[in-house]
């Protein structure tokens, strides 16, 4: 069950965002979020400016995790789709591959059926992108890599000292 760090590369993000934009257009949704199961936001598309997407990502992952546990308790391997109905806005959450969650927020301009249909469709292509061959290891040698250990450590230290201090 142990997994490595989730690493997302630029090429992948481009493709993912393209797919998500298509989903928004086809399903006429307000916005979509792609979140990993640990609660980190991978990317988002649509009207997300007014949303606290970081918190949303964490809560969506939490909500999905608890649903999954409920599934296990009732003898189901996993509920792969979750739907919350509100007065105006609704949210459709579905599993993409092994470790990511796709959340679609939509209102009454469209229907749950449409969202479900297109979400299912893009899930497959998203999964393909996410599980596609990761670029070679030397990609981790980004230009922004710290030059030496000590330099990095020092820069982290000053950052942390600045922010995590008792001064108000």
């Amino acid at each position: 069950m142990k997994q490595d760090d989730l690493v997302i590369y630029e090429e992948q993000i481009e493709q993912i965002e393209k797919t998500l934009r298509r989903l928004i257009k086809d399903a006429q949704a307000k916005c979509v979020l792609l979140v990993d199961k640990d609660g980190h936001l991978i990317t988002r598309q649509g009207f997300t400016q007014s949303l606290d997407t970081t918190a949303l990502a964490a809560l969506l992952a939490g909500s999905f995790a608890s649903t999954r546990e409920i599934a296990r308790l009732v003898g189901e391997p996993e509920f792969s789709v979750l739907f919350h109905q509100g007065k105006k806005d609704h949210i459709h959450i579905s599993l993409v591959g092994e470790r990511t969650i796709l959340a679609v927020i939509f209102d009454d301009r469209t229907t749950i059926g449409m969202v479900r249909l297109y979400a299912k469709e893009v899930s497959e292509s998203l999964n393909q992108v996410l599980s596609s061959e990761k670029p070679e290891e030397n990609r981790t040698e980004s230009e922004n890599r710290p030059e030496t250990d000590s330099e990095y450590a020092a820069s982290v230290e000053t950052r942390l000292d600045d922010i995590f201090s008792d001064k108000t």
Binding site: Q3, D4, D5, L6, V7, I8, Y9, E10, Q12, I13, E14, D36, D38, G39, H40, L41, I42, T43, R139, S142, N144
Partner: peptide, 15 residues
């Protein structure tokens, strides 16, 4: 585990 996003140049860690 930590999520590393090269597209947005972001590292996210969970404590």
């Amino acid at each position: 585990m930590a999520s590393i996003n090269y597209a947005f140049k972001e590292i996210s860690c969970k404590i």
